[in-house]
Each structure stands twice: as structure tokens, then as C-alpha cells.
């Protein structure tokens, strides 16, 4: 049982590590600011959730897990808010997205 939990936690941590690096690569590869935000959100959601879930499995049913849940909730609420504020500020500053289809 213990080995099983350890393996699951290992897989989650490795998955989180993978997604977080992919997001980092996307930050460099994507062509303009708005598409980079999508890459950033890969790191912010998948990387963060998987990694914290892996840590939760390590901690078991303790207060540490409760704290991990709070960290996750805070990040899940604040990160889209910050991204939205950023996107809106950029658009109002006149940074036009390079788009293939504009259906505004």
C-alpha cells in the first residue's frame, strides 16, 4: 500500500515537473504576448496542481495536506485574476494581438 502511494506520488510529481518545463518552453517559443499567456497558464494549472497533488499524497491525511489544499485554492483563484488583469492592461495599452481570426 505504501509503495503504491509512493509510486502514485512519484508519477504526479514527475507529471507536474514535465508540464511545468513545457510551460517554460512555451514562454520562449510562442510568438506574441497573448499566446505566451496560454503557455504560462499550462505551468500555472497543470504543473502546479499535479505537483501539489503529489505532495499531498506524501503528506497523507494531516494538517500539511490542508495547507497544501489552501495553497492550491489561493493559486487557482489568484492566477487567472492576475492573468486577466495583465491581458486587459496590455490591450488597453494598445498591444494588439497577432490573430488569424478576429471575430470581435
Amino acid at each position: 500500500m505504501n509503495a503504491l502511494i509512493d509510486t502514485a506520488s512519484w508519477i504526479l510529481l514527475a507529471g507536474g515537473a514535465l508540464f511545468s518545463v513545457i510551460g517554460g518552453i512555451g514562454m520562449l517559443r510562442m510568438p506574441d504576448f497573448y499566446t505566451r499567456m496560454h503557455a504560462a497558464s499550462v505551468t500555472d494549472t497543470a504543473g502546479m496542481i499535479l505537483m501539489l497533488a503529489g505532495l499531498m499524497l506524501q503528506a497523507g491525511l494531516t494538517l500539511v495536506t490542508a495547507k497544501l489544499v489552501f495553497v492550491m485554492l489561493f493559486l487557482l483563484i489568484t492566477s487567472p485574476t492576475a492573468t486577466h488583469a495583465l491581458a486587459r492592461a496590455a490591450l488597453e495599452d494598445g498591444i494588439e494581438p497577432q490573430v488569424d481570426h478576429d471575430k470581435r
Binding site: A14, G16, A17, L18, V21, G24, I25, G47, M51, G54
Partner: peptide, 12 residues
């Protein structure tokens, strides 16, 4: 491993 991945991401 997780720490190394995070540091690599931070560098990128």
C-alpha cells in the same frame, strides 16, 4: 527531480 524541474522552468 521536482526541484530541478522547477529551477529549469524558472531559468526559462
Amino acid at each position: 527531480v521536482a526541484i530541478i524541474a522547477i529551477v529549469v522552468t524558472m531559468l526559462l
